[in-house]
């Protein structure tokens, strides 16, 4: 393992608050080990900025182990950077070389307004979830154990795969149309494949699609960029399933 430290040029989107216009600014950062994660690199960068008396860059992060969906960042023109199947917190600096210039921008979508610097407001995803991303379970004390209801193995696997979506918004950031269909379809599929989800299936897909449009996300044109950039490998198969569910619900719902 090499312990050579890298020196990098960072081009970062700086924006004081939601109402101010922002712009790209260039910075230098030194002492970056290839073993650091991208967020650790930003921590080092912020420390250097604070020591120089500058305002540190605001960015989202939480678990730093790729499961919370909090980190974002468009790095060199790709959500979560150039690596595949990882979030920004799992992106290692060994993906970059000494002397590189790295462009760091917030996820861009009208439905993801910038709050400050690289932090975006993704509560539009929460509102889509509120519109139908749930099942109603009676908690009277006689609730049936979910394990007592048999589920076909193939459907169980597919529901589980859909449920691994962490709602980070990389699909929206990658899509040329800023469409949220991969996210919404994962949330629809996760329930549509299970017996517990059948009860509210029609309302769920209709309401979630309606809310998605209300939030101002774009239309899906099947470029497949979302699937490639998704850190959890959510499949386009889910979008096709959502389209089927939608068609079925809109034709039969009274």
């Amino acid at each position: 393992m090499s312990d050579k430290l890298m020196k990098l040029t960072l081009k970062i989107w700086r924006q004081k608050d939601a109402d101010s216009p922002g712009k790209m600014e260039s910075y230098q950062v030194e002492g970056i080990s290839e073993h650091m994660s991208f967020l650790e690199m930003l921590d080092v960068f912020n420390e250097q900025q604070i020591n120089q008396g500058n305002e540190p860059v605001a960015f989202d992060h939480d678990c730093r182990e790729g499961i919370c969906g909090m980190c974002s960042l468009q790095i060199n023109g790709e959500p979560h950077g150039p690596d595949r199947g990882v979030t920004t917190c799992q992106l290692h600096m060994r993906m970059f070389n000494d002397g590189d210039t790295i462009t760091i921008e917030p996820f861009r979508a009208k439905a993801f307004p910038v709050i400050k610097d690289l932090v975006v407001d993704r509560t539009s995803f929460d509102r889509i979830q509120h519109a139908g991303g749930f099942i109603s379970v009676n908690t009277s004390g006689n609730t049936q154990d979910a394990n007592n209801i048999p589920v076909e193995k193939e459907n169980a696997d597919k529901a589980f795969d859909a449920a691994t979506c962490i709602g980070c918004g990389a699909c929206v950031a990658a899509c040329k149309n800023a469409s949220a269909m991969l996210f919404v379809s994962a949330k629809v599929s996760q329930f549509a494949l299970l017996p517990q989800g059948k009860i509210e299936a029609k309302d769920r897909v209709l309401n979630m699609v309606h809310q998605m449009d209300e939030e101002g996300f774009g239309n899906c044109s099947n470029t497949g960029a979302c699937e490639v950039e998704c850190p959890k490998g959510i499949s386009l198969e889910n979008i096709a399933r959502m389209n089927r569910e939608y068609l079925k619900a809109s034709l039969t719902k009274e």
Partner: peptide, 28 residues
């Protein structure tokens, strides 16, 4: 019509965009 809506859905463009890594020219 869909294209106009799609343009509106991303009102601020990326300074650097690298779509060739995740989708085909034809699809975009």
């Amino acid at each position: 019509y869909l294209d106009i809506q799609n343009q509106r859905a991303r009102n601020i463009k990326y300074a650097q965009n690298n779509p060739g890594t995740n989708s085909s020219w034809m699809s975009r």
